[in-house]
């Protein structure tokens, strides 16, 4: 039996009222806990809620927490409310997004060399959608912009962190790097 702690109720209440993702630091402040304590509490709460098969679950990333509906009941939600199905993106956007997600940080040139086509538009589009953003500059000729995924990317995919991306271990390693290693 999973322990149902009183703090869960407070957190659930706060996240319900907020709707938007709440910065963990803010939660910690209200709960009068330290940030690591809050993170631990949220992780436990999520496990407990999942185990209980609750209708709403906390979605916790490194920076924020938010309440989301349990996707096991998606069919019933759709039956009741007919929500607009969120459109996913075109193939060229998905390719670009997966390069950035699995290989970050990357430059536009690196994206283009993998895809074999220009990707300015795709990158600009993904940036506009808030899924990727500039994360720095590469210490190379021209100091090109490095791109990485955002907090809202994690939330869009309902992930806690990047290692939860599908088949992360397999897709995250560039082939070229493997070969270079074997030469050295």
């Amino acid at each position: 039996m999973i322990e149902n702690r009183p703090e869960y109720a407070v957190i659930e209440c706060l996240l319900f009222v907020a709707g938007d993702p709440v910065p963990l630091i803010e939660l910690a402040r209200v709960l009068a806990l330290s940030l690591p304590q809050t993170q631990e509490l949220l992780a436990e709460m999520e496990t407990a809620y999942r185990a209980d098969g609750r209708g709403i679950l906390p979605l916790v990333t490194d920076a924020t927490a938010q309440l989301i509906s349990n996707r096991d009941f998606a069919a019933q939600v759709e039956e009741l409310l007919q929500p607009n199905r969120e459109k996913t993106a075109s193939q060229s956007l998905m390719e670009t997004l997966s390069i950035v997600a699995y290989r970050q940080p990357v430059t536009r040139l690196e994206v283009e060399s993998i895809r074999g086509v220009r990707s300015e538009y795709a990158i600009a589009q993904l940036q506009k959608m808030g899924l990727i953003d500039e994360v720095g500059r590469k210490e190379a000729l021209g100091r090109p912009i490095l791109y990485g995924t955002t907090e809202s990317f994690l939330r869009k995919f309902r992930l806690h962190n990047l290692s939860e991306l599908p088949d992360y271990a397999r897709f995250a390693v560039p082939l070229a790097a493997e070969e270079e290693f074997s030469v050295v």
Binding site: L57, I68, P83, M94, A101, D167, P174, L175, A176
Partner: peptide, 24 residues
């Protein structure tokens, strides 16, 4: 390399569609 990324893109697409079934 491109083939790997294409598979990743397909996996990501599925993950996105699945994730979209949880509402906020």
């Amino acid at each position: 390399e491109y083939q790997v990324i294409k598979e990743a893109a397909a996996a990501l697409q599925t993950a996105w569609e699945d994730a979209a079934r949880a509402y906020t």
